[in-house]
Amino acid sequence: MITMKFVKNIAIALAAVAGLSGAALASAGADKHPMEMEWEFSGPFGKFDLASTQRGWQVYKQVCSNCHALKYFHFRNLSEIGYEENMIKAFAAEYTVAGDIDDAGDPTERAGRPEDAFPSPFANENAARASNGGALPPDLSLIIKARHDGANYVFSLLNGYEDAPAGHEIPAGKHYNAYFKGGAIAMAAPLSDGVLEYEDGTPATQEQMAKDVVNFLTFVGDPHMQTRHQLGVAIVLFLAFWAAVLFLSMKRLWKPVKEGKNFYEGK
């Protein structure tokens, strides 16, 4: 009987592991495995690093937004990473968005407002491709969730530009990046030391900016993560306690059954 139990347990564990991780293990990511970074948002107690996220917003705004849209991000969302209403209004007002149709039937433009989505740098996909040598800069709203090991991947990619190894042919207009699938990426290295100056005085090294923008994009991709984590802890504590109480209740209830008392005989 002991061996039977043992075999059972092993088989169950295997089934669980294979079942749960099968999909995750399944498909291949970039050519080179991304660097493993420590992120403040990972794990069940993970939180947003607000200072870094705010710097990341600056990086996105000054560098990435020249080519990459962020369609699911609205200026009002900035309040969730610690900006005041008047600052958000000022950020929004820096951009021009499409307004209503005027009385003459012509399209109008107006300054952005907090409720507006971040305007796309290009009018449409074809315009984006035309300006980028045929390549389409992807929308970054969900980029962290849309790549395997997204945070590490984006961080690695931003720091992964180097000279192509000998014999690795890079087509014209492409750049070598070991973390990108195939190694040839249309985007030129977007970050380099001192490409911008941080408002909070943090030295703007390439690595710092890459880390900050990943923090920002993680927030944009999963804005409720921190709330969800906190809710999760409360739910887990409640369920664990309830399970314990139910277990004791069950044990007490079942005691006479386990002792062999009858319930239906003689009724």
């Binding site: 794990g43 069940p44 969800r228 984590h229 999760g232 739910i235 887990v236 369920l239 664990a240 399970a243």
Partner: peptide
């Protein structure tokens, strides 16, 4: 309990 761990974490 297990399900909500997946859902929230």
């Amino acid at each position: 309990l297990i399900y909500m761990c997946y859902v929230t974490f």
